[in-house]
Amino acid sequence: MEKFTTLSAVAAALPEDNIDTDKIIPARFLKTTQRTGLGKYAFDSMRYRPDGSENPDFILNKAPWRNAEILVTYDNLGCGSSREHAPWALLDFGIRCVIAPSFADIFFNNCFKNGILPIKLPREVCDQLMSDSTMGSNARLTIDLPRQVVIRPDGEEVPFEIDPFRKHMLLEGLDDIGQTLQHETEIKSFEHKVAGERPWMPTITLD
């Protein structure tokens, strides 16, 4: 996973509540067995017209937002399906940071696993960042993860909260599995304890 430290980039505003993962990537594009290559399908129904041509009115089809690396939306971003294809599609498109007043739980988790930083900020602040983003490349937002601030184009710093463990994982680009496997002894002893306490617990074996 790519490390996330600081990011200075164009931000695009999608001023909507409940942008669901079907909207981020519709189910018909989930037939891949790869993690990569999904960027071209991101926001398919908004980005393309029924004939397959680009919708020129959609923000991510306009310069400079075509190169946006930050998305700012309203509440409950990423609701619906657990598909990790949603952050994969965003990442492949080039998005490294998503900012919203609230997120759906699974999407929020999935972002961290892919080096995308999800930031929760109050709706009024999201409104300000959306307003900044209309200035396009003249108004890059800077995300400083070590200091936990979003720096607006006028230099104002907006602090944000992040779980220390997740911050560490993002800063170092670490994979959870390796970390958890360091607790092998504890997992083994837990399994031993359960086998004693709940010996009736069945296993799944097929003939």
Binding site: G80, E84, P87, I106, N109, N110, K113, I177, T180, L181
Partner: peptide
């Protein structure tokens, strides 16, 4: 790896959907 895993909560279990990175984590650990 499916959000509607919550269905199994009807059994009186704690059941929830996870992403594919977490699927791999559960497979390994």
């Amino acid at each position: 790896g499916d959000s509607h895993t919550s269905t199994h909560g009807a059994m009186g279990s704690l059941a929830f959907g996870i992403g594919t990175s977490e699927v791999e984590h559960v497979m390994a650990t």
